[in-house]
């Protein structure tokens, strides 16, 4: 009885311990704190309608962040997601404007996203071009192609049906259907990464590429699929963007790559690879999307948006790094100290 009880307790303790040491915790605490402080300054901020609005407005960031998180977890980077998003938005918007059914526009956008992801993936995992360079180049090319495709013009007058996709709410709540779907996607991807053999390959590849190769893990295929998924998710983000905003310009999605990378980092995804979850990336996206709203509620100009984002990013990351290093040093010292035993010194000299 006693033993069983102990076992239970230790399991509970372990779960708690795991929770306390999760990297996402810093982000969650931060998010809650931010909402609490702003709520104290301006209680309107904590109204249900505003909270749901915050969630809903983070939807594009979230879906793209999930995609890029996969790439970052494998130890690579993708700075072409903004361009992919813009391209998908342009294509889907043009198609629905010209009368194509929504599903067809959606499929076309996804196909283009997958293609861009495939090109990135081939360049990085097969041609071995460093990922920052490969995706930087693809970013330039796709940006240029958006101009070619749209002839530099805005895509406007989107049909009402298309715009309502992003507006319809989950019955009884203020949360949009698409935000709900994106969260479901996040959970599915999370389970895939943590519960399946193949999913674990992603973190393994990012953690130790040599070790992964030696164990027969398909390193190239894993990276390639990460890029394709990232391209697809960016494309979905593009369609959602077009639907939410209602028009698309040739510079739509510019700078999104930096924002979603920032969201991942805020959510505890390590740029070194191997560490992080898509749930964390989603939380990071929520923080990113909330900052400008927060500024409005505490009566500051949204001009401070970038300043705050930059400070946040730096503070969270530096804090995390300093803590981790301290922990590592302490652990090392403890281990070394444990090794320094008391030896019977009799019989020398």
């Amino acid at each position: 009885m006693n033993v069983a009880n102990n076992g239970k307790q230790s399991k509970l303790k372990r779960t708690l311990n795991k929770l306390l040491h999760a990297r996402e915790l810093t982000s969650i605490i931060f998010l809650v704190l931010m909402f609490a402080v702003v709520g104290i300054i301006n209680s309107n901020f904590l109204s249900v309608s505003n909270l749901t609005l915050s969630l809903n407005s983070s939807v594009v960031y979230t879906i793209v962040a999930i995609g890029i998180a996969l790439v970052i977890i494998t130890g690579e980077i993708d700075v072409s997601v903004g361009a992919t998003l813009g391209m998908a938005a342009s294509i889907s918007a043009t198609m629905v404007r010209d009368g194509s059914p929504t599903w067809l526009a959606f499929s076309a956008a996804i196909l283009v996203g997958a293609l861009i992801g495939l090109i990135n993936g081939i360049g990085v995992s097969i041609l071995k071009v460093p990922s920052i360079i490969m995706t930087l180049g693809v970013n330039s090319i796709v940006r240029g192609l958006i101009y070619v495709y749209t002839d530099g013009k805005w895509v406007e007058n989107l049909p009402f049906d298309f715009k309502t996709i992003s507006q319809s709410k989950l019955p009884g709540t203020g949360i949009t259907l698409i935000y709900f779907s994106v969260i479901v996607i996040a959970i599915i991807v999370h389970l895939f990464l943590n519960r399946t053999q193949r999913g674990k390959y992603f973190a393994a590849v990012g953690d130790n590429e040599g070790g992964a190769t030696l164990l027969g893990i398909p390193v190239n295929a894993t990276r390639l699929s990460a890029y394709v998924i990232c391209g697809v998710f960016s494309a979905i983000g593009g369609v959602l963007y077009a639907s939410r905003v209602g028009f698309v310009t040739p510079i739509s999605g510019n700078g999104y790559e930096m924002k979603v990378i920032a969201a991942c980092v805020l959510g505890g995804v390590s740029m070194a690879g191997g560490v992080g979850t898509v749930i964390g990336a989603s939380i990071g996206s929520l923080i990113m999307a909330s900052i400008s709203r927060v500024l409005v509620f505490i009566g500051l100009s949204s001009d401070y948006d970038n300043t705050i984002t930059g400070c946040l990013l730096i503070i969270i990351v530096v804090f995390d790094a300093v803590m981790q290093r301290r922990n590592a040093v302490t652990a090392r010292h403890e281990r070394l100290r444990a090794r320094t035993g008391n030896v019977n010194l009799g019989g020398i000299k």
């Binding site: 973190a203 393994a204 953690d207 070790g211 992964a212 030696l214 191997g274 560490v275």
Partner: peptide, 11 residues
């Protein structure tokens, strides 16, 4: 079994 351990440090 390699001479230099090739583990996944974060697992």
């Amino acid at each position: 079994v390699p001479q230099e351990p090739m583990l996944f440090p974060n697992m």
